[in-house]
Every structure is written in C-alpha cells, then in structure tokens.
Design a binder for these strands. Sequence first.
DNA 1: ATGAGTGCAAATAGTTTGCAAGCTG
DNA 2: CAGCTTGCAAACTATTTGCACTCAT
Lengths: 146, 146
Amino acid sequence: MASADTTELSDILERLKQCGLRMTRNRQKLVEVLMESDRPLSADELRQEAGFSSTDLVTVYRNLEAFQSAGILQRIPLENGSQLFELTDLGDHYHHLICRECHKTERLEVCLGEQLSEKAKTLGYSKIAHVLEVYGICRQCSTATG
Amino acid sequence: MASADTTELSDILERLKQCGLRMTRNRQKLVEVLMESDRPLSADELRQEAGFSSTDLVTVYRNLEAFQSAGILQRIPLENGSQLFELTDLGDHYHHLICRECHKTERLEVCLGEQLSEKAKTLGYSKIAHVLEVYGICRQCSTATG
DNA sequence: ATGAGTGCAAATAGTTTGCAAGCTG
DNA sequence: CAGCTTGCAAACTATTTGCACTCAT
C-alpha cells in the first residue's frame, strides 16, 4: 500500500500551515473529502462531496491549486483533457490505471520517475515533472459490454 | 531517429483510404503540415500552418479525430489540459520531454509501454493506452531566466 | 447520386479572473 | 486590523455539436 494512507489529517493541516495557508472551514472540508476518498476526484465531484453549492467550484479550484503548491496534492490528466485530483504523501506522487468506462482508478506500483528524471537531467532539463497514466477497459466493463 | 520519419506521405494516404476516409484537399494539407513539422502542434497551430481560416478549427479537430482513429496520429496532453498532435509511425507512439517555457519538444527514446501494458493486462484491462510525458525547463530557458 | 466532409454559428466543459465582502491569525 | 479567502458573476480556452451545403467516389 502507498504511504499516503499513513499520512494523518493533522500532518496535512500542519503542512498547509507551514506553507502560509490559513485553515478555513472550506479547506478543512476539502482535505477531509480528499482523505476519505478511495479514488482521485474531479473538481466538481470534490465540490459535491464537500457539500458546496455549485457556484463554489471556484473555491475548489483555488484550493486545489494551493494544495498542489503545498505539495500535498497531484493532478491526474485524463484522455479528454480534464483532470482528477488526489492527495499525495507530502511531495510524493503516483501513477494510475484508469478504466475508460467506469472510471475506476487503480494506483500503479511502478514509478518510472527516477529513470525519466535522470534522462531529462542529462539532457539539461530542470524542474522536472512527469505524467504517466495508463488507460484501458477493466475486466468488469469489458465483460459487461460483450 | 524514430521511424515515423521513414513513413512516406503515400503510406499515410493509403492508410487513410483503407480506413474509409476520403482524400480531400483539407486532409491532404493537414497531413503535409504534420509531416513537415519537426514538433507536435496544437490544433490551432495546425490550422494556421495549413492556412485555414480561423473558423476552420472545427475541420482540424474533426480530421485529427479521424487521423487518430486511423492510427496515424497521437495526442500529447499538456500540463494545462490542452493537447498537441503528432503523426506516429502507423500505430506506434512516442513520449516526450517538453519544456514548460519554450515548448520545445524532444522525443524520448524510452518507451515503457510494454511493461505497463503487461501490468495492465495482468490486472484484467484491455484496450490499453498510456500517456507518459515529462515536463521541465530546458537548458536554454533556465539559463535565460537566471 | 449518395454520403462523407466542410464551413459557419452556436453550444459545452473545464477552468480562470475580477472584485467586493467575510473571516483567520 | 491586515490580508488571505470566499462567493458570485463573468470571461476564457479548448473542444464539440447542429445543420445546410459541397465535394469525392
């Protein structure tokens, strides 16, 4: 299992505080929802789960950005260009296997980041980040379809 | 160098025909631009290079979709959610190292697709695709900035 | 001639920005 | 109290859809 599961709510709040972010009711709620979720969420799913009104999507986005800067959250790009959000273990990140049909998301235990970062550094790049996501159709969905 | 460079225009046109796509002036032009480009292009860049009017972006998108279905083109997701498009070697695909500042794009010679696909298959997934892109700041840009 | 492809307009989805008012430290 | 945060409206970007017209086969 990934280590984010062992990160305490208090650790996260502490981290946010260290980054100069104030602890508001909204933020606390968003962090809670993210922690409780067993899968990455879209901005709007997150808004709903947090019980925010539909106009508050803005707040969600602003906080997601803040969380990302604080290093507690990562974005997962989907094939259609939209994104999902997931807590990470303070600066760490994960890769996923995502079903195109039911959107089930499994975390992949591989991380090729090191090889890649090394390669990129060799080529003179700095501030390296990478995106690695695998899309497919899971067993249930392919059975269901035919 | 990657093998797409060795794919002939005629091969591509042939492939499109096989897929039931008609060969129109627009399509021919788009394929030419894609072939001549030494880097992945956005939909709008492609439109401009092809000399289409600004309302014809639609045509570009529709053809990009057709090309992708025909297996001659891949999409590259950017960090901001938009995408770039690039010809592939008939069904093959590539990964990139993309500079966040100047958007220079280098093709990575690594392809971890096999390991990943294998893993995904083991987990019961089918129709597997993956996205692997590395973002960073290239030497020139980091020197220029500071 | 038949249906794929195109052009134009308009709609959508996702995300970002501006600004006044509210809340945290 | 100062300034980070929020809420609401509105703008934006990238992309998609509807429909009548045109062109490739």
